[in-house]
C-alpha cells in the first residue's frame, strides 16, 4: 500500500464485525469463524504454559490434571473441541474457495442461470456434517467415556 493512499474509516467498528444483517448464512459463519479462531488462540497461549508443566514431573502434573477433572474444565474442553472442529472444517472450506475451487468459470448468463452457490452450499453442508461428526465423537469420549 502506498503512503498517499487514503485510509477509510471502519465506520461500524466492532458492530461491523458482529452484525450480519440480511446477508446469507456464510456471513454469519464468518463471525463464528472469527470468534472460534480467537477463542482457540487464547486457549492455545494458556495451553503452552499448562502443557509445559510436564517438565516438573508427575508430582506437579498429576495434581494439575486432577484439577482439570472439574466439570468447569470439562465444559471448557468441550468448547475447545467444538471451536476447533468448526474452525478447522470451515477453514478448509474457505481455503478451497479462496484458491478458486467451487467458484466456477466466467460464462455467458443464459437462463436458467448457474450460480457458484450451487457448488458452495453443498460444500458448506458437507463440511458441517463432518464438523458435527467430530464434535459428537470428541464429546462422547469426553462426557461418556470420561476421558
Amino acid at each position: 500500500m502506498s503512503n498517499n493512499e487514503k485510509m477509510y474509516d471502519n465506520r461500524l467498528g466492532i458492530i461491523g464485525w458482529l452484525g450480519g444483517g440480511r446477508w446469507g448464512i456464510e456471513r454469519y459463519l464468518y463471525i463464528i469463524h472469527r470468534l472460534a479462531g480467537v477463542g482457540v488462540l487464547i486457549f492455545f497461549i494458556l495451553h503452552i504454559f499448562e502443557g509445559n508443566l510436564r517438565i516438573f514431573g508427575p508430582e506437579i502434573w498429576n495434581p494439575v490434571m486432577k484439577v482439570m477433572e472439574h466439570p468447569v474444565f470439562k465444559v471448557g474442553e468441550l468448547f475447545i473441541i467444538i471451536g476447533f472442529a468448526f474452525h478447522a472444517l470451515n477453514g478448509i472450506r474457505l481455503i478451497l474457495i479462496e484458491l478458486g475451487w467451487a467458484v466456477g468459470k466466467a460464462e455467458e448468463p443464459v437462463y436458467p442461470y448457474k450460480s457458484s452457490l450451487n457448488t458452495q452450499r453443498p460444500l458448506m453442508v458437507i463440511m458441517f456434517l463432518l464438523a458435527t461428526l467430530l464434535i459428537l465423537a470428541g464429546g462422547f469420549d469426553l462426557m461418556f467415556l470420561g476421558h
Binding site: 474442553e77 473441541i81 476447533f84 478447522a88 477453514g91 478448509i92 467430530l134 465423537a137 470428541g138 462422547f140 469420549d141 469426553l142 467415556l145 470420561g146 476421558h147
Partner: peptide, 17 residues
C-alpha cells in the same frame, strides 16, 4: 495445523474410542 492438530485431537480426545 489442520493435519497435526487433527492428529493431536485424535490422540487426546478420542482416547476412549
Amino acid at each position: 495445523v489442520f493435519v497435526l492438530l487433527f492428529f493431536h485431537m485424535m490422540i487426546i480426545h478420542m482416547d476412549g474410542l
